[in-house]
């Protein structure tokens, strides 16, 4: 009998934390189901790009994805934008408290009417800031052109800091930073390292202001149609690969930072608690502004689970 094929498409390289997590899932799934399931990986947007993968999943052209959480806002589930709120999570535990708790499950529930089932949250670490000049205080952001991904929260965040957000395709980012079309960007260390952003930036600030995570999602119809035993085996595979992906994200980020330091091209600055408090104060209006989009109850539930305390 021909195996059940799961096409797992994602937009990053195979050697990134997400790529490795996907690879681990493939191995586990095929092993646990005794070859009844075959997982085909399509990294690097080979099959579907950032902008179309969600529709492709809904159509059933592809069965499994791991988009970043920011992609669910445009899908119509704006509650997911809560994950982009600056300084919401103080550490990884605080993030896991949200995703592993009731809120994480509730948010996944909201995807079901869209024909999508959420299986797991994959952690990818905290965002730091980079630029060609030191970014210590909020005032340092004044007039800086900062590249962001399409996101209403990130847009508001850069504006609140006094910077000009620039939405720009990732493919153009390296050269844009090199020539100065944009002055800086934000992201996780592992991306800064693999995409060689550190070659074209002089300063990085360990602000940990944002958090990057992915959701492993499947086409709901496909998932519900699987034989129950296979579904259980796949769930176990997801669970194990999630533990693996989360662990690897944190080691990769650490390794990336070491690599960036070793390159000698970048000055890495860790802001003082007072400076962070100043950033937080400047960014609280963003939380307020997003209430109308994300919903007050969702934000409050996230505050509670994450143990968020408003800056004084």
């Amino acid at each position: 009998q021909a195996p059940i094929v799961i096409k797992f498409s994602h937009v990053v390289a195979p050697d990134t934390p997400k790529g490795k997590g996907a690879q681990r899932f493939k191995e586990l799934a095929e092993q646990k189901t005794g070859g009844k399931v075959k997982v085909e990986l399509y990294p690097n947007s080979q099959l579907y790009k950032d902008k179309e993968e969600m529709e492709a999943l809904q159509l059933g052209s592809v069965q499994m994805l791991a988009p970043s959480l920011a992609k669910f806002g445009p899908l119509g589930v704006k509650e997911f934008e809560v994950f982009d709120l600056p300084f919401l999570f103080k550490d990884t535990d605080s993030f896991r408290a949200v995703t592993d708790g009731q809120l994480g499950a509730d948010l996944f529930k909201k995807l079901e009417p869209k024909g999508i089932k959420g299986l797991a949250y994959w952690d990818n670490g905290f965002h730091i800031m980079s630029a060609n000049k030191p970014l210590h205080n909020v005032a340092d952001f004044k007039g800086m052109k900062m590249r962001i991904q399409s996101s209403k929260v990130l847009d508001a965040q850069m504006r609140a800091l006094g910077a000009i957000p620039q939405v720009m395709a990732f493919s153009e980012l390296y050269q844009a930073l090199q020539t100065g079309v944009v002055d800086g960007t934000e992201g996780v260390p592992s991306n800064f390292y693999t995409q060689k952003i550190f070659e074209v930036q002089k300063h990085m600030t360990m602000s940990n202001h944002g958090h990057l995570a992915y959701a492993v999602i499947v086409n709901k119809k496909f998932w519900d149609g699987l034989p129950a035993d296979i579904r259980t085996q796949l769930e176990a595979a997801i669970k194990e690969s999630t533990t693996y992906a989360n662990a690897i994200a944190s080691t990769e980020n650490g390794r990336a930072l070491e690599g960036i330091k070793a390159s000698g091209r970048v000055t890495i600055y860790t802001p003082t608690p007072a400076e962070i408090n100043e950033w937080k104060k400047a960014l609280m209006p963003v939380h307020k502004e997003m209430e109308s989009r994300v919903g007050k109850t969702t934000i409050e539930a996230a505050y509670k689970a994450a143990g968020f305390v408003a800056p004084k």
Partner: peptide, 12 residues
């Protein structure tokens, strides 16, 4: 049909 739109939905 989807690809016919998104196929050129690329900034470059």
């Amino acid at each position: 049909a989807l690809k016919l739109f998104t196929g050129i939905e690329k900034w470059e």
